[in-house]
Write a protein that binds this DNA or RNA. Structure first.
Length: 584
RNA sequence: GCCGAAAUAGCUCAACUGGUAGAGCAACUGACUUGUAAUCAGUAGGUUGUGGGUUCAAGUCCUAUUUUCGGCACCA
């Protein structure tokens, strides 16, 4: 996927296109007033105030037509420098531009760009003439708060995108189409993975196929974590309010927490697993010899997210974090983080996901602890990142109030980026819960704690995988791995059943299609359901004691013995391979 | 929560300015006995998200509400 903001010439072109759009809107809606029209990763937008009127989705073609007209006219785009006073005079009827100008420094050079009758306050640069702005598309309209503050009024935001060639535009629009086809909400329904209900907005129901996928992910997670020396716990969903006061959540996260009253006591459903994890740590005495102590929990949390934030499996109100808390001596942080980065790398590579790491540092205002410790902690994370052979981009001020963190941004098969894994240093909870370990000198000392997730949330990760694989999961994850299709049920059902039972006995998730339909019909359904392997059983297979199979997405057929087929498949599943090895 | 759009059969969708809901797929029944992406025929399936209202008449208009979608804000 392209990033328009980071491509210099595309950036300029898109910004000029935003001006062109504004000019067209001004022609069609003379009362329109404009706020800002920046370039974003996926194109540009412009925030517009149309007073009582509104531009609707169906009006966009009209605006596009006007834009084409202006583009054809081919006016030059002229840069003008004005003083602040002149600028205020020029835009005296436009409270938005006045707001912008007033926020500029007294002696700064203010530039405007003029094209025909339209002039806009802008830093530039722009393309030379509007003629160069040809291959664009307006994509959507939405509301957006003035200055991004939910206390302010809502303006209309109109999104578009522009390219240098018509081919590039088509490619991008095709990409959007492809992304739409992969929508996990659509595929989740079609493939019987999960459902939603009006009775539980934001609370997904997992169906049988979704559960198989989910269990595979969880099993994989447990296996890998066991190898990494983790131990596992399960802490309660609901705990007394007093605990949340102690952890600080009651004050910092109260409005997103579900609560329940019973026996005149308040209980809160956990929005995070850490406080429960703290109690487990405190349950026993810890020696420095036992550190780092790695404690994992697939923890079900509930968070009351704003209704408008909900989005399929990507944003839900209940989800399972693949959480773990690691308790260490301060001297162990770097080594442990390096180890974690390697671990996360191994987990992601199984799915064919690449990623970038970002370091989020101390927030400007709201943070606990002293700055020295923060600086040190940030340095440890950055060093660990480099030691692990990875670059990390700094994300200033984006850390949690209790510590800095490394965020893993994964890239899917369409090049889209998702935030999943995170490693967070916590300088708060060990203090609040008075955690200790006994050091070699017999003195109780404060451990350092790390929170970390790899999938992030299993629900969200499943959503990402659905879109990443377009619903065609690799064999190890596929709800149904093999579909056995007899060519003619009267003659081939017996041998087909034999093959089916043999696969079942070998732990392969298999279906037998014994309906009396034509092969083409049953095969089509196999493909529609995105089953990785379809086995066809007819006279030839029956006589020679073979299975013939083809894979999803290919029309090549291979014939092998039953035993060879099972061997091949078992290895493929064991290795969690995405690509098949059929050629031999 | 805010702005905008939408909700019709299990699924995907249709029904012009209000005139009393229809198709394909799926399901079921029967015929066909099938070799690599849809065999044919028939049957059944709906208080049009929910509650009010306007009207002789509402899927269609008004209103409230729920949910979903696209954004915004949020996501320590």
């Amino acid at each position: 996927m392209i990033n328009i903001k980071e491509d210099k010439s595309l950036n300029i072109l898109n910004h000029s296109c935003a001006h062109l759009m504004a000019q067209a809107i001004k022609r069609l809606y003379p009362e329109a007033k404009f706020w800002v029209g920046p370039v974003i990763d996926t194109g540009f937008y412009y925030d517009v105030d149309l007073g009582e009127k509104a531009i609707k989705e169906e009006d966009l073609p009209n605006v596009e037509r006007e834009m084409k007209k202006i583009s054809k006219d081919g006016k030059r785009i002229i840069r003008e420098e004005v003083s602040k006073k002149e600028a205020l005079e020029m835009f005296k009827d436009d409270e938005y531009k006045i707001d912008l100008i007033n926020n500029m420094e007294e002696d700064s050079d203010i530039t405007c760009y003029r094209q025909g009758e339209f002039v806009d306050l802008c830093r530039g640069p722009h393309v030379d003439t509007v003629k160069q702005i040809k291959n664009f598309k307006l994509l959507k309209v939405s509301g957006a708060y003035f200055k991004g503050d939910s206390k302010n009024k809502v303006m209309q935001r109109i999104y578009g995108v522009c390219f240098e060639t018509p081919e590039d535009l088509t490619t991008y629009l095709d990409f959007l189409e492809e992304a739409k086809k992969r929508d996990h909400k659509k595929l989740g329904k079609e493939l019987g993975l999960f459902m939603m209900s009006e009775y539980g907005p934001g609370f997904p129901f997992f169906l049988n196929n979704g559960m198989i996928l989910r269990n595979e992910l969880e099993n994989f997670w447990y296996d890998e974590h066991t190898k990494e020396g983790y131990e596992f716990i399960k802490t309660p969903i609901m705990l007394n309010k007093d605990l949340w006061e102690l952890s600080g959540h009651w004050y910092n996260y109260r409005e997103n927490m579900y609560t329940s009253e019973i026996d005149e006591k308040t209980f809160a459903i956990k929005p995070m697993n850490c406080p429960g994890g703290m109690l487990v740590y405190k349950n026993s005495l810890h020696s420095y010899k036992d550190l780092p102590l790695r404690v994992g929990e697939l923890g079900l949390v509930h968070r009351h997210e704003a209704s408008g934030a909900l989005n399929g499996l990507f944003r839900v109100r209940t989800f399972t974090q693949d959480d773990a808390h690691i308790f260490m001596m301060p001297s162990q942080i770097e080594q442990e983080v390096v180890r974690l980065i390697d671990f996360i790398d191994r987990m992601y590579s199984v799915f064919g996901l690449t990623y970038n790491i970002e370091l989020s540092t101390r927030p400007e205002a709201k943070f606990i602890g002293n700055i020295e410790i923060w600086d040190k902690a940030e340095k440890v994370l950055a060093d660990a990142c480099h030691k692990a052979g990875r670059d990390c981009k700094i994300n200033p001020g984006d850390g949690a109030f209790y510590g800095p963190k490394l965020d893993f941004h994964i890239k899917d098969s369409l090049g889209r980026v998702w935030q999943c894994g995170t490693i967070q240093l916590d300088m708060n909870l060990p203090e609040r819960f008075d955690l200790t370990y006994v050091d070699s000198d017999g003195i109780k000392k404060r451990p350092v704690m790390l929170h970390r997730v790899i999938y992030g949330s299993i629900e969200r990760f499943i959503g990402i995988l659905i879109e990443h694989y377009a619903g065609a999961f690799p064999t190890w994850l596929a709800p149904v791995q093999v579909n056995v299709i007899p060519v003619n049920c009267n003659y081939h059902l017996e041998y087909a059943s034999e093959v089916y039972n043999y696969l079942k006995e070998n732990g392969i998730r298999t279906e037998l299609d014994e309906r009396e339909e034509k092969l083409g019909y049953k095969l089509r359904e196999s493909v529609t359901k995105k089953i990785p392997i379809s086995i066809i059983i007819g006279d030839k297979e029956k006589e020679e004691d073979l299975v013939s199979y083809r894979r999803y997405g290919s029309d090549k057929t291979y014939s092998v013995s039953k035993t060879m087929f099972v061997e091949l498949l078992k290895n493929e599943i064991k290795d969690k391979r995405s690509k098949s090895k059929d050629s031999e």
